[in-house]
C-alpha cells in the first residue's frame, strides 16, 4: 500500500540554518493497516506526513503509494490536519465543506450532497450540514474534517495529530470514531501523534521515530483484543506493557 524508501528531507539545504528533518527513513504499510507513528515533538513527523501526501518534495528517497511514486497528492488519499479551525473553510456550510473535494469525482450535485450527508452521518453530525464551522465546537469541527476525508472514499487516510487540539473527553470520543469508521470503510490509516497512549490504543502497529533527523527506532505490533474500549483496553496488561515499551523508545531508553 505504502512504501517509504530511504526518505530524507533537509530544510534550507546549504544555508547556516540547514535542518535535517528526516534521514534515510524506510517504512512500509500494508493494505488495511492502522499505523500510528509516534515520536517526540519536532522530530519530523509532519514532514514525513507531508512527503507521503505529496505536499512537499522530499530531498532524498521516495514514497510510493499503491506502487506509484508520489509526486503530487495521490488519488484516493485524504488528509486530516491537526488544525481543523484553519483547515475547514469558514465561508462554507459544513455540508459544502465536506462536498467540496467531491467536485473532481464524476458526481453531480445531488450525488455530492448525498455523499456529504452520509459522511456527516457516519461521524455523528447528521444535523450539522447547514451550520457553519464556527458554530460547532472544536471536536465537532474535527469530526467535519474527518467526514470530509471519508466522503472522498480514500484508500489511504493520513491524520496529522488529529486530536492534538481538543480536550481529553473529546479526544477519546474521536479515537473511538477513528476505530469505528475504520471498521466501516476499507482503508489504510496512518495516524501521527505524540501521545503514546493514543498510539497504542488506536493502532494495529506503532512505529516510533527518533528525534530529528527522524528515523525508525521501534516497530511494534499491537495485539489487543477487539473491540477496543477506553476503559478495559487501557487496563489490559498488554496495553500497559506496550505503552511502557513505546514510552521508553520515545524517550530514547530502549530496552530491546
Amino acid at each position: 500500500m505504502l512504501e517509504i524508501d530511504n526518505l530524507s528531507h533537509v530544510y534550507g539545504g546549504g544555508t547556516p540554518n540547514e535542518h535535517h528533518a528526516i534521514d534515510g527513513l524506510n517504512l512500509s504499510v500494508a493494505e488495511g493497516e492502522l499505523l500510528c507513528i509516534v515520536g517526540p515533538s519536532g522530530c519530523g513527523k509532519s514532514t514525513l506526513l507531508r512527503s507521503i501526501a505529496g505536499l512537499i518534495q522530499p530531498t532524498g528517497g521516495q514514497v510510493k503509494v499503491e506502487g506509484e511514486v508520489v509526486r503530487q497528492t495521490p488519488d484516493n488519499l485524504a488528509v486530516v490536519f491537526q488544525d481543523y479551525s484553519r483547515s475547514l473553510f469558514p465561508w462554507m456550510s459544513v455540508a459544502d465543506n465536506v462536498a467540496l473535494p467531491l467536485r473532481r469525482k464524476n458526481m453531480d450535485k445531488k450525488q455530492r450532497r448525498e455523499a456529504a450527508a452520509e459522511a456527516l452521518e457516519s461521524v455523528g453530525l447528521e444535523n450539522a450540514g447547514r451550520k457553519y464551522p464556527f458554530q460547532l465546537s472544536g471536536g465537532m469541527q474535527q469530526r467535519v474534517a474527518i467526514a470530509r476525508a471519508l466522503a472522498y472514499r480514500p484508500t489511504l487516510m493520513l491524520m496529522d495529530e488529529p486530536f492534538g487540539s481538543v480536550d481529553a473527553q473529546t479526544r477519546e470520543d474521536l479515537e473511538d470514531l477513528v476505530l469505528q469508521v475504520r471498521g466501516h470503510h476499507q482503508m489504510t490509516i496512518v495516524l501521527i501523534t505524540h501521545d503514546i497512549d493514543e498510539s497504542v490504543y488506536v493502532g494495529d502497529r506503532v512505529v516510533v521515530l527518533s528525534k530529528a533527523p527522524a528515523n525508525v527506532v521501534g516497530d511494534l505490533k499491537v495485539d489487543l483484543p477487539a473491540p477496543r474500549d477506553q476503559i478495559t483496553t487501557r487496563e489490559h496488561s498488554d496495553f500497559v506493557h506496550l505503552r511502557a515499551e513505546v514510552g521508553r523508545l520515545v524517550r530514547g531508553h530502549a530496552t530491546v
Binding site: A53, L55, Q72, T73, D75, L77, A78, V79, F81, D83, R86, S87, F89, M92, L100, P101, R103, R104, R148, Y152
Partner: peptide
C-alpha cells in the same frame, strides 16, 4: 493551511481561485 488543504484534495486552479 487552506491552500495546503486545496492541494491535498487536488482542487483545480479555478476551484481554488473561486472557492478559496
Amino acid at each position: 493551511l487552506h491552500l495546503e488543504t486545496c492541494q491535498a484534495f487536488r482542487l483545480s486552479r479555478a476551484e481554488r481561485l473561486l472557492r478559496v
